[in-house]
Amino acid sequence: MRVIALRNATKRFPGAGGRAHTAVRDLTFDVAAGEFVAVVGPTGCGKSTTLSLVSGLEPPSAGEVEVDGKPVRGIPDGVGYMFQTDAVLPWRSVVDNVAAGPRYRGLAKADARAKAMVWVERVGLARFAGYYPHQLSGGMRKRVALAQTLVNEPRIMLMDEPFSALDVQTRQLMQDELLRLWQGTGAAVVFVTHDLEEAIALADRVVVMTAGPATVKAIFDVPLARPRDVEEIRMTSEFIATYREIWHSLRAEVARARREAVDAG
């Protein structure tokens, strides 16, 4: 069962000097229900743009984006989105941040809080439920964002480099936690990252993007069993073989993006 389908989706932004700047072009790939897909590509190639097309926050300039078999017009039902930059509300406590979704969706305050509290506990923040975001570390704020997304029980989760700003130990902890929480939900995940190790450790399939304007270069299956332990799995020979195979494809794009950045700068 396909939940996301991109068909030659292209996105152009008004660029400098009135000329259109193409962020992504001719994107074509599918995501099945319950599948964990990682999208990798060099920085600035158009990964965030791809997610904004699926989320309905931006309409495609050409081509078609479908969720649940219907063309995306506005934000589709059942979509959760963890943004690249922090989007927790600084004026709300942890539990009230997590309760935001249920409140918007019409739940009474007490019910929304009770529901939120369950997720606050699941992400390990029970003791900090009453804290404001500025009193939390970066890793804890990501947990809040994760709980805020999961409390709505999305069938599709879009995650934009959610852990890239964290230190290595915290990042691995969060990756493990994400897999643990996701396993129960049956949600499809599109996980954007520029870290190939992270992509392989988490995903069922890895989509490699070309340097900007991005299009799909290749798609790889990750032949690793679940449940996974992200620290252990990095040492296995299957992981290393998969890494080598995908890196071979990705390396050229990273090199090209770097050359273009040098030329432009």
Binding site: I75, L89, A100, R105
Partner: peptide, 23 residues
Amino acid sequence: NLVDNARILGASRAQVLTSIVVP
């Protein structure tokens, strides 16, 4: 980002105004 996040979480236009813009 805050506005987009609220919309994804299910906020209507009026809810975006009262829960994001005003604070």
